[in-house]
Amino acid sequence: MDLLKPFIDEHAIDVTAFIGSWPNRLQASAEQKDLSRMADRYQLKGVCISHIASVFGYDTRSGNEALFKACSQDNRLWPFAIINPTDEGWLQELQWAIDSGVRGIRLIPGYHQYKLDHPAVNRLIEIIEPYRLPLHVCARLQDERLQHHRFYTEAVPVHSLASMISAAGDNPLIISGVNSNEKDEISRYLHADQSIDHVLYDLWHVNGPLAVISQLCQKGQASQYAFGSCTPIQTAEATILQLSAANISESDRRLLCCGNAERLLSMVRMSG
């Protein structure tokens, strides 16, 4: 556990976590008490959670209701409702989520099979923008090579993630599940004047090359990433140890573990 102490000392925020069971990996499962235990063990300030049932269910609402119930048990568990803006009734569900105190909205275009340039995505941004409610877009939830062959899902293309950055205006945006090369590729699509102050990338899929965290800090990107574990689909300690052991300044470690996420999540204006 000593190896993980530098991370624990930062009282991190996990911007990407899930509750529920992954349908084709029995061991990839977390209940509320598991996430609370993880928050205890690693002294997390907050964990941004969505329900896996909203990824695979016939609706998102069932998972979102279970999500709110679970989060009500522990104020470190912050509900990020998954909305499918191509579903019937999504507008009502979004408003219900906002009224219920949602802390962010999560989109999973690959699993819900729509493109990020779908008009309903822009409509969703218009609705959440007055609240500056963080929008969390999952490019993937698993390495494509390891997906179940009967349930294969394409990763969200990097160019559409770049378009999303401009479409989001200055609304807080978290892009989840891209690696460092894809992140750099996204940057190439951006207009030179495009502000990226409202954008963070999570780190769970930034698992190579060797010493990747220190490399991205050397490139001046420490303000652009945040800890996100993708637990229980992924192993949280993989990313935790990367952050703990990285040969980086303490100020960069603080930004990556907590500071950046805190800044982005504090943009919320819940009065609308």
Partner: peptide
């Protein structure tokens, strides 16, 4: 390594 991160891989063992 070097295409995968050493810490990430050791973290998988720690997490077990």
């Amino acid at each position: 390594l070097p295409f995968a991160c050493m810490a990430s891989n050791l973290g998988k063992i720690v997490g077990a």
